[in-house]
Simulated scan of single mutants.
Amino acid sequence: MTGDTSDHATDAATDAFVAYRNLLFTVAYELLGSAADAEDVLQETWLRWVTVDLARVRDQRAYLVRITTRQALNRLRTMKRRKEAYVGSWLPEPLLTTPDVAEDVELAESVSMALLLVLETLSPTERAVFVLREAFDVDYDEIAAAVDKSPAAVRQIAHRARQHVDARRPRQVVSPGEARVVLESFQRALETRDLQGLLDVLAPDVVLVGDGGGVKQAVPRPVSSAGKVARMFVGGLGKLTGTITAGPTVVNGSPALVVHLDGELDGIMAARIEGGRITGLYYVRNPEKLTRVGAETALTLR
């Protein structure tokens, strides 16, 4: 009889975990910017979840989010040391996303490369509070339980983090259609190595960030200004032997480009677009961060 009860409890725990798995992955990914680490956090969450007495759990979603947040915070602190030893600039791991992600403006913005980079400038606790409150609408009491702070302290942290993010996030939300038009112009100029074409589509203060992880060549530090970025693409591409092609894709809920060199995947280029021009380019070439662009990843805020 005991075995039957235990099996039933495990089945119930499994059903709940599966029901919220996409949500938990999204929480972990927004906190970490790494799909590989998010998957590890989900594994750790599961191992703790199956030991919980479900009869005492009032809100399974909230409880699972709390476990996931705590595990992600632990990992964030170890990732800080890894990033300090990282070769060159660090960019979030790009995800090929399902069409519904792009259709959900709130979700698409919350997982955009541009916002994830802004979140990198927050402390681990600030990031957790901001993400849980702004993206997932978790109440202050639940956030307090997840980050081991008082609700009053969480409110202050949330206010401070929101001000910090608002000062640095894109000033306007661009529709997928607008973004595609801008990226098509950039793609044509990139493939034909058209310097003037690049200058026309890049904002004067555009910033290019490249991530090769020490495995592939990338700009060692961010490159600023349209002139420098355009000349770097034209001159740098000129040194490459082979045919470069760029095709449209949807990464982290936003239009992006998948770049191939002689038919082989070279990298993913995401963009921050404002006022009809590209203000930020994020080129991920590190092969370890390109493993999720072959299949769609389901993300959700609910």
Rank of each mutant, 00 (worst) to 15 (best):
A167C: 04
T26H: 05
T243G: 10
P170G: 04
A189T: 06
V259A: 09
A28P: 02
A298P: 02
L47T: 11
T279A: 01
L132F: 09
E30G: 11
A153M: 08
T26E: 06
A128R: 05
A230P: 00
R61M: 07
V182P: 08
S123G: 15
L237R: 01
D59W: 10
I268D: 03
S112R: 01
A72T: 03
R77M: 13
L31C: 03
L115T: 03
V50M: 04
R272K: 09
E142F: 07
T297S: 08
A38C: 06
A38R: 07
A13H: 12
R160Y: 02
Y86C: 13
E103Y: 06
T279P: 00
Y283E: 00
V18N: 09
Y86T: 15
S254E: 14
R188E: 13
M79L: 06
T121W: 00
D53N: 15
E264P: 04
A152M: 08
L190N: 10
A16L: 14
S6Q: 12
A179I: 07
L281C: 00
G177A: 10
N22M: 05
E93T: 15
D4H: 00
K216N: 12
V181Y: 05
H260M: 14
G263N: 12
A36N: 10
T68L: 10
V52K: 14
D59C: 10
L42H: 04
L195M: 11
A28D: 00
L117V: 03
V165D: 06
Q60L: 04
D141W: 07
S150Q: 11
G88H: 01
A179Y: 02
Y29N: 01
T279I: 04
T45K: 11
G212C: 02
Q60H: 12
L24I: 15
V18Y: 13
T192V: 15
R155A: 05
V234Y: 03
Q163I: 04
T125L: 06
L23R: 09
R188T: 13
A102P: 09
V41C: 12
V50Y: 03
G242Q: 04
H8L: 11
E184Y: 11
D137F: 14
E264N: 14
D200W: 05
D53I: 00
V201A: 08
F17A: 11
V182I: 07
V138P: 01
G235E: 11
Y283V: 01
A218Y: 05
S6W: 03
P220M: 10
R127I: 08
L107K: 10
I244G: 02
R56E: 08
L265M: 13
V209A: 09
V52P: 04
T98V: 09
V87L: 15
D266I: 00
K149I: 02
L198A: 11
R180T: 11
N252T: 01
V41A: 11
Y86S: 15
H164N: 00
T249D: 09
Q43H: 13
T125F: 06
R66V: 06
T10Y: 08
L76E: 11
V215L: 14
V154L: 12
D166L: 15
V182K: 12
A12Y: 05
L199E: 09
K149P: 02
D7H: 01
R188N: 14
I157A: 05
R277M: 07
V50Q: 07
R77K: 05
P287A: 04
V234L: 03
R81L: 04
L76T: 01
Y282L: 01
M113L: 05
R193G: 11
T291I: 15
V87W: 02
G263Y: 09
V41I: 15
H8A: 13
R56V: 02
G247V: 15
L290Q: 09
L265Y: 10
